[in-house]
Design a protein around this nucleic acid. Structure first.
Lengths: 139, 139
DNA sequence: CTTGTATTTGCAACCAGTTTCAATAAAAAT
DNA sequence: ATTTTTATTGAAACTGGTTGCAAATACAAG
């Protein structure tokens, strides 16, 4: 379960530099149990190294996303949250009425995925999806 | 097919005021064939009435969304586009590799919708969804 | 046709995230 | 060890969108 090293080695395998900033960002992501936001990562780092810039955090997250090392979820709170890809994929149903978040099993979307692949030659990225709508009480 | 009047009357039925700003926004949305962005609506209006403010456009779009009169799609271009709800629902597959946009049939998501309703008591809002991923060439 | 009032607007400040560009630092070449 | 190349960073400006608040106005009641 040595995630930060794992992500770090994947970065360097692909020719990206292992800068102190990147390593700090990786361990912040990995040490957070739940989903972490860019702000939270930044706040954690800036406490020790005040000259690190928020745009570096965003750029690194962008890179990690592109390499498939983290996934992103928009839970409708006006900011996006990040999660290490290796810790598993999952989905959320987000009620627009009461704000409830219902976790969703991964395989539920498998059939949609297959259909899109078969009928549209399209490989959807359904890791960590948030579907908006309304729960029974609110609809 | 008298859309703006239709949306306008729904607004006033619900007790919302029919201000000139709102009427201009409604007709801008309705006159655009394709999906229109907040900027585009604003640019159209400000050309005739320079003192109208962009935040009014955003506030009105928010309201129309809440009342289900327009739907919103994020095609990954860094801004969101709007579409009158009565003009029909449709979905897009958006390739992250080449940027291709594949239109998707409405009923395809019906089975997902039913499953979520049956197994999770959740009524998803799947009008005008954009699914990110990769087309065959790019994957 | 005025008056009262709650809704709506414009403005300015703000927020999350992105971009440009010159300065810096890691790794490669000498 | 020094230089060169190239990736990365910090700073500042910018983008799309939101929010708080005082001023304005649509509409209902008199």
């Amino acid at each position: 379960m040595e995630q930060p090293r794992d992500m770090a080695s994947k970065l360097s395998e692909q020719g990206y530099r292992l800068t102190p900033q990147r390593l700090m960002i990786l361990s912040a992501i990995d040490n957070s149990d739940n989903h972490i936001s860019a702000d939270e990562i930044y706040a954690q780092i800036v406490a020790k190294y005040p000259n690190v810039n928020i745009s570096t955090v965003y750029r690194t997250l962008e890179l990690l996303k592109r390499l498939g090392l983290v996934t992103e979820t928009d839970l409708g709170e006006g900011r996006v949250r990040y999660h290490p890809a290796v810790k598993g994929h999952h989905h959320h149903l987000l009620c627009q009425g009461c704000g409830a978040i219902i976790d969703l099993d991964e395989p539920l979307l498998a059939s949609l995925k297959n259909t899109l692949l078969r009928e549209y030659n399209f490989l959807p990225d359904l890791r960590h999806l948030a579907i908006l709508g309304r729960c029974l009480k609110c609809s």
